[in-house]
Amino acid sequence: MPSKQDLLDLQFIEARHKLLDLAAFLDRIDRHPGEDDYRFAAMKSALPILLENRPDRARAVLEAFSDPTTEPIPQASFQGAFGAPTPKH
């Protein structure tokens, strides 16, 4: 099993790149005109999870982006999925 140092050597630059891209995405949305929506709010509310001291941050982020309801719905008002629960949830 690789050590922390091995993984840092292997993946730090890639992870740094992903974090920078996310920071730039937040800046980009702020800088542009119009309103953001529930997806942007969901993303911002998931960000603090990254700093939590826990072993399952990826799982917690996925849960933050999940429909919290439990019953099957009578009919779908749209097809497809957008990555964060729509506000009616």
Partner: peptide, 13 residues
């Protein structure tokens, strides 16, 4: 299992 936001609920169902 469903996509994105629908996956967790769909998997449980």
């Amino acid at each position: 299992t469903p996509h994105l936001e629908d996956k967790l609920k769909g998997t449980r169902l």
